[in-house]
């Protein structure tokens, strides 16, 4: 199962590789997230995908109900490329880091990504290309060393 830490899925590149941001018009449920990820999975030159969203805690974390299971319907295990992924967030955006060499290659990959999202995100999204994530370690990454 894919672990769910705040760290990026792949090692830091140390340099700002291009990222495609897919910013959904609505927060996505687990089923839609699964569809989007499976549509993105076969696209070549994707180095890693990081999702952001709103946290769905496993248990109620404060107040009179503290400690009891949250049982949020969208916090569940989905299948991506045959792998189990435990989803902990209501996903709102995908940050797709690309392993491309030039503009032509970038355009081609972005076109494939856009197509995949169009097919799986009926409520719409916007695409943005840039750098949105850390590409170097910061203090937090050294915790526990």
């Amino acid at each position: 199962m894919i672990s769910m830490s705040g760290k990026p899925a792949a090692d830091y590149a140390g340099i700002p590789l291009p990222e495609v941001e897919i910013f959904s018009n609505n927060m996505l449920g687990a089923d839609t997230t699964e569809k989007v990820l499976n549509a993105l999975e076969p696209i070549e030159h994707i180095r890693q995908i990081n999702m952001t969203g709103e946290s769905l805690s496993k248990n109620i974390n404060n107040g009179p109900a503290k400690g009891i299971p949250n049982n949020h319907s969208e916090r569940k295990v989905i299948k991506v490329g045959g792998r189990d992924v435990e989803l902990c967030y209501l996903v709102g955006a995908f940050y797709i880091e690309l392993d491309v060499e030039d503009e032509e290659m970038l355009n081609a990959v972005v076109a494939q990504i856009t197509e995949a999202c169009e097919a799986t995100m009926p409520m719409g999204f916007s695409v943005n290309i840039g750098r949105f994530s850390k590409f170097r370690k910061s203090l937090r990454d050294y915790r526990g060393e």
């Binding site: 894919i2 769910m4 830490s5 705040g6 760290k7 990026p8 899925a9 792949a10 990820l37 993105l40 999975e41 994707i46 180095r47 890693q48 995908i49 990081n50 999702m51 952001t52 969203g53 709103e54 946290s55 991506v80 490329g81 045959g82 792998r83 992924v85 989803l87 902990c88 967030y89 996903v91 940050y95 949105f132 994530s133 850390k134 910061s138």
Partner: peptide, 12 residues
């Protein structure tokens, strides 16, 4: 392992 996937609450 296929495309590495991560998830987080907020962007840096």
């Amino acid at each position: 392992i296929g495309v590495p996937l991560g998830q987080r609450l907020m962007m840096p």
